[in-house]
Amino acid sequence: MTVVYSLKNAVKERLIDGVGFRLLVPEIQISAQENIALIGHSGCGKSTLLDMLALILRPDNCAEFNLHPVDGDSHDVGGLWQRDKQSKLSQIRKQHIGYVMQSGGLLPYLTVRENIELPRKLLKLPDDDSINSISRVLGIDRQLDKLPGLLSAGERQRAAFARALSHRPSILIADEPTSALDPVTAQKIMAVVMEVIRGLKITLITASHDWAHVYKMELRTLKQEAEAVDDGKVYQSRFTD
């Protein structure tokens, strides 16, 4: 199976409320069509790692950071960040990655349909039935002409998934996509999403602090370990295979 992500000694440091935080990824490899879950408590660096994988957060250091989408060329992401090739990173991101935020992140001034269409428009993809079909599968086909503000939280998350999948990316990154929903709705949405992902052969990387939920979805988990280093001044979090 093709290795989609390959990271070695990736480091990201942040100062949160005066306390140092360091995310350390000694080595991870993610293969095509794998479904991965980052599990850990709040503040352990799940979102930081997801953002790095989504190419929207620059690692401070990395010995290796390669991305090889199944439908495209291989990219030395670490090198692109080093050379500050933001446009190239943006190009890779919009072509190969779909991203779902915790809060959905739909643009409030566009209708649900326009939100879902946006990634396709940017890639100049043809107007076909894909918007309607993905909306039907996710159960929001009746909400397409409404503004996001008129939708329920569950419907907004479904619309966010539809937007992330509308341009048929080979990688889907979802940052605690169901954390704001009740367990029943969350389970329903994830069941549908998993079905779509398997059908489209997409690599899923998600973050969650709900162990039971992840185990039910049969996702491969990345282990997280934390320790205080530098005389307790820095909280260091490690994600390993």
Binding site: I56, S90, R93, G105, L122
Partner: peptide
């Protein structure tokens, strides 16, 4: 969000 979906800076 616009940058996330692919707009250049």
């Amino acid at each position: 969000v616009l940058r996330l979906v692919g707009f250049k800076s």
